[in-house]
Design a binder for these strands. Sequence first.
DNA 1: CTAGGGTTAG
Length: 447
Amino acid sequence: MGIISYEKKLFGATIYRNLYSCSTTSICTSTPVRELFKESPHRVKLHMCDSYSKVHHALEQESLGRPSENIPYGKQAKSFNTYETVESFCQMNSIGTKPTKFILCTALNSCAKTLNWQLGLQIHAYMIHSGHDDNLFLSSALVDFYAKCGAIMDARKVFDEMKTHDQVSWTSFIAGLSQNGQGRDAFYMFKEMLCTQIKPNCLTYVGVITACAGLKEAFELGLSLHSHVIKFGFNTNSFVGQLFNDCYAKWGSIDHAVLLFDEIHERDAILYNSLISGYSQNLCGKSALELFMKMRNNNLSPTDYTFTSIVNACGFLTVLFQGKKVHSLVIKIGSERNVFVNSSLIDMYSKCGDINGACCIFDQTCEKNNVLWTSMIMANAQSGRGSDALKLFEHLLTEEGFIPDHICFTAVLTACNHAGLCDKGIEYFNKMRTTYGLFPDVVCLLS
DNA sequence: CTAGGGTTAG
């Protein structure tokens, strides 16, 4: 891993920076910008820039790409605006206009949404350079930016260095911790916030509930949070209601989830998706299908999320006719390229015994990933095509740089079992530990 | 004139 150095200019400020590789891991281990400003030859230096033409060129080479086609339909318009914001900002920069704190705030917000790490860093640099770094709005936006880019340590540093905190900065940081898998810390920060004068609002609750949903002792914490929410009257907020709905479904209390669902009167597609997924994950396929019909009767258009869960339910119920009907709707709505939907479809077709249907979906999917590949290996394995499954697996290893996980090995071992290739199975079982560092339980081999 | 939120697959 070599050291890559780069030079960036923004509004007359030049940043020199050394990075260990430009992969996303550098984001997590990055040095906070403020540190980089210390005068040191190998660190960042700030001085006046004489050529603005270089700026635009440098920025063009960065991650200012267009949003990919995978962005969910509903979010696309918003996302384009965000990209346009970044572009206008860069144009402003190239003609030498100085940005105001309002513009910086909007641009930083767009950087957070589009994960534009390089530009966000430069804005932070400019904030320090121009004395905007104690602005509450900008600091909150910065906390959000770092957290969204996965640099939670940097987010914490910005948060800690703020002179005063308000509702938004607390909420941004709590949400950031939660999004970075530090649910426990998010919960502690929430408790700390309750000790201050700043009162939480519904967005704060969204952050802390999401955090709590991923924890081991979630149920206990969730119940106390829920009573807290009811006490302060936030239970009528549809976001908060939906999250609890989701939590109860995740914890297996599907009855609780249904009660909550009935209490919410303004039901949007996401709320339906959430309960349909809850039914599907709790193996209540029939209820999932019924709710799906209800959703359609209410003129709510199904999304990729809906299809993924409902196809899953069809697979569980092994209702091929229903499954095919949903599949045609998938094509009609235009979700046939979504990798989540297609993994579910492959699984559904194979569970219903239609291996050719599964193969068709697999062949038609342009952007494949580990889960989709594993679905296809499993589909072959369970349809008695053990050797096809292994052929696919070997092809992926040699041609596609595929790194299998333990679920994939379960599929491979199932294939060996069905094809009667006991020796091969033991060979893979050993490879699992030696080559991939996966520690299987013996059940894997026995299956 | 500027900031923060929810749902999906093997």
